[in-house]
Structures are given as C-alpha cells and as structure tokens.
Design a protein around this nucleic acid. Structure first.
Length: 279
DNA sequence: CTGGGCTCCTGTCAGC
DNA sequence: TGCTGACAGGAGCCCA
C-alpha cells in the first residue's frame, strides 16, 4: 500500500497530535514482520516525541521516565504492503487485522495490517540496532538538495540492473514504490527495462525531476488509495485517479494514445508506454 | 559486491 | 456457487 507519499501523509497526521502524549497501554495482536523487541509494559508511562520519517519508515521517539533512566529510544514503524495507521480518541474494538495499539492520553494509535508485512520495532535510538541496521541501506531522501542530478547520475552509472529495479530497491533514492516508479519513468520518458548505467546525464536529471514531481504531486493529493489506504483520520488519497500508466493496461497513453503495456519485472507489474518510453 | 528470485501473509477477483 | 490461481502499494534475505 504505502509508498513515500502515503507514509508521509500518515506521519503528518500523527506527529503533532501525539507529541508529548503519555503512553497508557499497549495492545498487541498477531505477530508482525518482527517482534516488538521490548516488553510492552515498559512503554507505559513513557512520553512520545515528534514523529519523523526516513524512507518509508516512521520513527516515533519514546522517552521513558524518569529522564535519567537508560533506554530511551523509539518505535520504528513500517506499513509494509497493506498497513495503515489510525488515530482515534475512542477506537472501536480491535478487529482481526488490528495488530498494534498504542493507547495514549491523546488517543490511540492503531496499526491495521491484513498482510502483516508491516512492523513496529523498539530501538534504543535511530543510530542503535535494530533501527540503524534497517535504515543503513537506504538511499537519499528524494527532496534532499544534496541529491543533485550529477550525484544521481553517478549513482545510476554504478548499477547495471534495470532502472525500474534500481528505483524500487531504494538504495539510490528512497520513496518510489511500484506506482510512483512507473509514473516517474513515464514522466521522464524512460523505458523501465533500460539499464541504469546506460542513462545519460540529461536523462538522469529528467528522471530525478520526475521522481520529485511524482512524489510531490501524490503528497498534495493525499497519496494513492487503491484498495484501503487511509490517513490517520480515515481519509483516502486521490492520486490513483491521476496516474498516467499505473493500473491502466490497455488504456490509451495520455501522451500518444498507444495502449499502455503491462509486463512483469522482478515479480512486479510494470506499466509503461512502449512508444513514449525509450531505451 | 551485485543482481535476481523467494518469501512472509491475507484478501480479492477473474475464470472455469 | 465453489474452487483455483494470479496478483496486490514492500523489502529483507539468500544464493549464484
């Protein structure tokens, strides 16, 4: 479900309401991708900090009392493929797919995740394991000014995998998942199967701009809601209606009217226009 | 080191 | 209507 725009929409919805909140209880459902890594009771009484985001991970700082106590840290949250977070003053009884509740004096943060590829993991800090390990392999943030066209191009030149695979891997630039990788490649006019190291400097610059434009546009629209993504208040995104190629196999390309193609690349459906997107 | 495939899990939908 | 297989927004892990 969630790519960077959806994760960021989620983070924005919970950051301010929960900053400074006190944890009253923790409820666990079925196991997620990894164990929580801390005894839930140890979180009770702790106060939450301002949530941040790195890639598709949300970091929720947790300061345990008393202040001098060792073991301040936070919760690293990932929504996986089907996860969403809801924040409610008085949430309904947990359903079969509600696997984590953080009950606070400012409301309950609940992870709903049918496929359970998501995770909520305790870490002593962003620079301690396991958070540091999970974040270590991440590429640049897409809106980081330090990611210049030259640096992006240089990173692509070191990779022989198809550009679509490189975008999805997230080790050059994070944030574009299957939808936005397809959309950005369409915008840039680049064939998804083109080897990353064969992309010229101007085309790399165009692709970086396309990734940024695609993610920014999706963010403006509240993300994409294909089946069930929702922000913390339950509102869906609207980007999916604007997608040029994703999920539009057989429909006319908005630029040239040739039928949009779908083909599997690394087990993932890849949508593109064979006439607009060149190798 | 890199690239590619597999895997985790549940739900939904098309096709027979 | 019921069953089966394909596919779904991610990404860690293993192997060649």
């Amino acid at each position: 479900m969630p790519e960077l725009p959806e994760v960021e929409v989620t983070r924005r919805g919970l950051a301010e309401p929960l900053e400074g909140a006190t944890v009253l209880a923790v409820r666990l459902g079925k196991p997620l991708r990894w164990p929580l890594g801390i005894e839930p009771a140890r979180l009770v009484g702790a106060r939450l900090g301002l949530a941040s985001r790195r890639g598709k991970y949300i970091w929720l700082p947790v300061r345990r009392e008393p202040p001098a106590a060792s073991g301040n840290g936070g919760l690293l949250i990932h929504l996986g493929m089907s996860g969403s977070l809801a924040l409610a003053a008085r949430p309904p009884e947990p359903g079969a797919h509600d696997h984590f509740d953080l009950v606070t004096d400012r409301g309950t943060l609940r992870l709903h995740d049918p496929r359970r590829f998501g995770a909520v993991v305790w870490s002593e800090g962003l620079h301690a394991a396991p958070a540091a390990t999970l974040l270590a392999r991440l590429g640049a943030e897409p809106f980081d000014a330090a990611l210049t066209p030259d640096r992006f191009h240089a990173a692509l030149r070191a990779r022989r995998a198809p550009i679509k695979a490189v975008l999805l891997a997230g080790d050059v630039v994070v944030g574009a998942g299957n939808i936005y990788a397809c959309e950005a490649l369409f915008l840039a006019g680049i064939h998804p199967a083109l080897r990353a190291d064969r992309i010229s400097r101007p085309r790399a610059a165009a692709l970086l701009a396309a990734v940024r434009q695609t993610l920014a546009r999706a963010l403006d629209l509240g993300g994409s809601t294909l089946r069930d993504f929702a922000d913390v208040h339950g509102a869906g995104g609207a980007y999916q209606a604007q997608a040029a190629v994703y999920g539009r196999e057989g429909e006319p390309c908005p630029r040239c009217a040739a039928p949009v193609r779908r083909r599997l690349m690394g087990q993932r459906s890849t949508y593109f226009c064979a006439s607009c997107q060149r190798r």
